[in-house]
Amino acid sequence: MLSRDMIGHRFAPVQAHVEAGRLRNFRKVIGCAQPGEQTAPPTYLFALEMIESENPMAFIEDLGIDMAKLLHSEQSFTYFAPVRAGDRILLETVVTDIFEKKGGALLFVVQDTKATNQHGAHVATVRRTLVIRN
């Protein structure tokens, strides 16, 4: 059972390469008419972590979360600098909060990811809030 003891848990960092072909494919799939753009689309860092991770499901498996009970509650991106094709981005994720609602029927897990580029610049902070239906 997931408890608040897991607040502060750090996931294995992901060293990710922003590949032009991957960016193009992502844009084509969502219906972008100009998929050749070299700047990453606004939600791309979320995808990048899963694309490049050794274990894309580590963010739930480390915490013992049953994937069948998982839903996405909230997502936010705060950008400090653009992410472009060719960049190498370090993604470091930590559990920042765990809380219950509805008498424990819903359990929320907040994870913050810091994205740092190859020049050491903090380019974005990505926050996902997951909800587990107990």
Partner: peptide
Amino acid sequence: PAEGILEFSTRF
């Protein structure tokens, strides 16, 4: 331009 987006958030 994406460079002009400072924050972007949603609730599902």
